[in-house]
Each structure stands twice: as C-alpha cells, then as structure tokens.
Design a protein around this nucleic acid. Structure first.
Lengths: 337, 337
DNA sequence: TTGTAGGCGTTATCAC
DNA sequence: GTGATAACGCCTACAA
C-alpha cells in the first residue's frame, strides 16, 4: 500500500480511503481516485486480508461444521450457505465432525481463534448449555445451529421436529401400510438423535396399541450404509425380521435394503423400508426409497440468513425457525397390487 | 496477551515464548512457564490467529477447490486432505467451482488475498500457462493440482491418465465384452476432460478397426445424473442405441442406466454401461456399475503431502505423480450366462 | 532466562 | 480533501 501511495504521489491512508470509498463517507477528488487506481493496477496491489482483519476485527469468513461430508443431505445445506455467503462477500470454512464430540469441540476452538465472523453448526453432541456456553460467552460471534434440541439462549436455531416426523411415519406405516410388526434401525443413545427418533417410533406404536418388540430394533448404527447392512445381518441372525422397518436416515436405509436383498428378502413384499432425509441416492436404489424428506436448501438458506442477520445487526433477537418435512412415498413401502 | 503478562508478572514477549515454547529454541524457567500457563487458563486467553498471521506471514490455512461438492469422488479427496492437514495443524478452506471458469478464477483471487499457506486445486478450466501464471507469479504460495494437463512448471501435479484409462476400458469392452457398436457419453469440448477422454475412446475404436459412429455419441453432458439421463433420451429418440456405452463419469453413467431402464432397455443385456470414478453410488445402482476406479484417498493424500512438503521445504523440486486407476468389473457389463 | 523496542499492513482519529 | 499518527495483537532481534 505504501508503494501504491508513493507511485500515486499521495499518502498511504489516502490509498486506503480510495479503496474503501464505497463503504466510507469521505469525499475524495476524482483525480486522486484515478491516480490511485492506476497505481493499484500497475503494481498489481491486493489488499492483505489479515492486516485488515487485525485492524477491523472482521475476517469476512464464516465457518460451517457438518457431521459428514459424505452424506448428501449436507451438500445442499453447504451449497445454500455458500450461495448466501457469496452475496455477502464472505468465504466459508467447512469442517467435518464425523459425529465425534471431540471434533465438534475442536472446531469451536479453531474457529474462535481464527476470528471468523459467524458460525453455523450441525452439532450432534455439542448441544447442552454447559458444553456450548464456554464458546458462546467468551465472544460475541453469532452462532446459528441446526437442531431443536440445542439448549442455549444465545444461538439461533433452525430445526426439524424429527421425533414427530418419525412418529407420523410410523403411524402412516401402520394405517396406510397395514403393518403390525414394525422394527426400527437407529444409532446408540450417546448420539442424541438416537433416543429422540426412537421415541417417535415408540410413541406411535403405543398410541396404536401395538406391541413393542426389542428384538425388532437395532441401535448400533453409525449413520452409514455399512451400519444399515449390519443391522439387517443382526436381525436376520436372530431370526426375527419385522415386516416393516423405520430407519433413522437414508444412508442406513439404503444399506439395509441392499443387505436385505442379498439375504433373499424382497423389499417391500417381505420387508417395507422407510428412511429419513431424501438424499439423491434414495432414487437410485431399487426399489426407490420411501423417506421423510427434509428441505436442505431451505435449511441452508435459513441458517445463512439468520447468521448474516446477526452479523449485520448484532442486536437482533434470536430466531427459532422450524423447517418442514414431508413423507415421500416411493416403492420401498408400496406393495405391488 | 498483555493481561496475561501482567497477571503472571512477566513481560508480554515472555508469554509469547511460553506459548510457542515447543517451536522455539530458547529455554524458559519452569516457574515462569507455570505462572504464565496459569494466567492463560484463568483469563481464558486464546491466541489471535490473525495477528500472528500478520506478523509471521503464515495463516495455518490451506485451501482446496473441487469441482463439485455433490460428487462423491471428491469427498474422499477432501477427507484425505483434511486428515493430513490436521496432522500438520492446518485448517482447510473448501470451495466449489461447479466446473465454472469464473469460479475457478475467483477462488484463486480470494485465496491469495486471504494469505493461505498453500493451495490444492482440481482445476477444470484453469490449466493453461497463461491462465495460471498471474496467480503463481505474484506470490510464492505453493500450488498443487490434480490433472496432468495442467501446464505450469511451478505447480506440483498429481494426475490420472484418463485418456489411457478410457482407451483401455474401450478395448476391454471390445475384446472381453465382444461389443462392436460402442457409444460414448461425454461433456462439451469446452470442458477439457471432454475431448481428452473422447480421444481415448476413438483411439481404441480405430486401433481395433471398428467404425466410429457420431450418432452413438453424446457430448452435451454436464457430469450429473440428469446429464446422463438426457444423453439416453437423445440416443433413444434418434433410434440408434449402441449395445455398449462408455460414460465419462459415474454420476452420468448412473443417470444413463436409470434412464435406459425407464425406457425399457435391459442393462447389460441390451446396453452395457461402463463409468469412471467408482463413487459409492456405483454399488447402489442395479445392475452394479462397472467402472474405472480411481483412488481418491491416495490422490488426496498425495496432494496434501506434496503441498506440505512445499510449505515446509519451499525449495523442493516439483512433483509429478501419476495415480493409478483400475477397471472394476461389476454387473453393468456382465451378461448373464 | 527475560525484558525492550520495533514492525507486520491495515483502518481510524485527528488535525490541517 | 488529504496527511500525520496511533493502534490492532503478535513475534523476533537484540540487549541485559
């Protein structure tokens, strides 16, 4: 910047003013402006973002943490966030927790050190007040999260009522599908989504007066295709395969379908399967997967909008936006007539 | 840091020394060390990465640009890069070009401004010397790219010989599969991968003395499932469906298979299909997709290792590493006996 | 082993 | 309108 100033025959602060002329109130003579811009061009000057950040305490950087980059559900969220960020002239730092608690904490620390201007998280474990407060109280960086269960007054929340979604899907399987023996494939209790979604399933059974059979349930999943396949193998070995299966997410549901077929079961004739998320693979697998669709584009846009609202107007009250879901009936539950 | 110094009763630089004691040669008395660390803890001090970056000209940040976050092929690359980066205590900024030239250039600009310490790219268009040189010459930030066609002496290259891979796959289809009428689904010429891979296909036909029929080829693809489906619709409409199809990537190959089945074709009996990448979806689709597997984990690790080699030893000579590929025979080419 | 002084490249607050 | 001058938070000679 000093070089530019020298070449243009002005002082260094003047160069700064010219470069930021649109976000500043001072008037600069057109002639100076021109001379400075010329010098900038011939010298190929580019402003040093770190130096500016140090001075302004802004980084023009936001961070997003997702649980699994390999899960298509998160792609559209990320894309939507990036699109909004670009409009605001922000870059996006993406991180991957792989559903691991330590990674989530590490993310928060890194992010605070790096002085990002805002944070979007899809926390799996980092949801209690006590876990979150250390990060939230020591800065006033806006946090926006996906997940209704997140317990802190300072965060904006976008959420999907997944307990209710699973509850309704189970009821649908009972009433529209005419199923009685409905099993469940989920994840261990230490993954908060596990008990939450499981509750929806059990509530539907109870209210319908149907028996709950622990032998039909598998809770050792890990959100992946392999996890879904393992569930089926276990169920098969114990010799109690239910006639319908609620699976906690699509990736596991797909793994389950493929494993069922390998073992000689027909889907949906022998076992109907219903997933959660509506990832692109849901329409690749045969039969096509019936699933509870979330709206990742909408979720991402909401997350990003809430964040930039807070970045630009820090005193805004916290948002709490429910995002919709919708059961999409495809072939994995549809009996041929 | 000043506060910490005051509380510990030492000077501010001493605090800095304690905090960086492992990467510095000076000895510090254990007592001071302890007092400083205590103060750090009670004050909840965290080092300001931007200030450090300004002083050291290092950001502990690398950036990676991929062509499509929704394409599973890139996930493992990104993961591998993140894993290596974590070992080196680096964060990763991820960006998405969506195969668009302007996005690629924008990425380079942003990245240089932000003072990242290194760049990994999967450039689609930004491959000529003239396009790259502006970014490379104005800094000495290491660039590592995926793509043999990239033409600049200052970059490290990891590459896969995709022309040869397609050539061999086509030969395989001719000799092992016994096919004569082999079609091709690709992307427009302005996508450099288009002509390159197409060349491999034509070379195999020529050397085998087989006719080349433009009516069997579609070059308006866009790397997506939808693109593959469109190709099939077009081929179907013109009434000349070849008996085997080389498709430029798996996503399009899967789109093609689904579209073929919807139109009543049997795969592989009526049309055999072979893809490129070996993404996870290749084993979801039925029939399972025969494909030229790349090794994304290896690619990502190589990319990252080359980069950190350069970051840590700037004078290293440039690398040029070929990554392997391998034809994986699955059911989309295997005629039932 | 520790303290002092200076500067990294900006922006912000004054004067003029 | 523009130019000095200080400060953002840290690291690194150099001196003690």
């Amino acid at each position: 910047m000093n070089d530019v100033a020298k070449l243009a025959g002005v002082s260094q602060p003047t160069v700064s003013r010219v470069l930021n002329s649109d976000s500043i109130s001072v008037h600069i003579s057109d002639e100076t402006k021109e001379r400075v811009m010329d010098a900038v061009k011939t010298l190929g000057y580019r402003t040093n973002v770190m130096a500016r950040g140090l001075r302004t305490q802004r980084s023009q950087l936001i961070a997003i943490m997702i649980a699994d980059i390999s899960n298509g559900f998160y792609h559209l969220i990320v894309r939507a966030v990036q699109d909004v960020a670009r409009e605001h002239n922000y870059e996006v730092l993406i991180s991957n927790s792989d559903h691991v608690y330590e990674n989530e904490k590490h993310f928060c620390e890194v992010v605070l050190d790096r002085g990002v201007d805002g944070v979007i998280m899809v926390p799996i474990h980092l949801i209690s007040y006590d876990d979150l407060d250390p990060y939230l109280s020591q800065t006033d960086i806006p946090f926006v999260v996906l997940g209704q269960h997140v317990d802190h007054p300072e965060v904006d929340k976008i959420f999907v009522d997944d307990e209710k979604a699973i509850y309704e899907a189970t009821l649908w399987l009972i009433h529209k599908g005419g199923h009685q023996n409905i099993g469940y494939v989920g994840v261990p209790d230490f993954q908060p989504a596990g008990p939450r979604r499981f509750r929806g399933y059990r509530r539907a059974l109870e209210e319908s007066g149907l028996p709950f059979n622990p032998a039909w349930c598998y809770s050792e999943g890990d959100f992946t295709r392999e996890g879904g396949a393992k569930a089926i193998k276990r169920l098969h070995e114990t010799g109690t395969m239910p006639e319908a299966l609620i699976v906690l997410n699509d990736l596991m549901a797909i793994g389950a379908i493929l494993a069922l077929q390998e073992l000689g079961y027909n889907v949906p004739e022998d076992v109907a399967v219903i997933g959660f998320d509506d990832i692109p693979e849901a329409t690749i697998v045969r039969p096509k997967l019936t699933t509870i669709a979330q709206n990742p584009r909408e979720i991402g846009t909401n997350l990003a909008n809430a964040l930039f609202q807070r970045i630009e107007h820090p005193r805004t009250t916290r948002r709490n936006i429910e995002s919709s879901y919708k059961l999409i009936e495809r072939d994995s539950t549809r009996r041929k007539t």
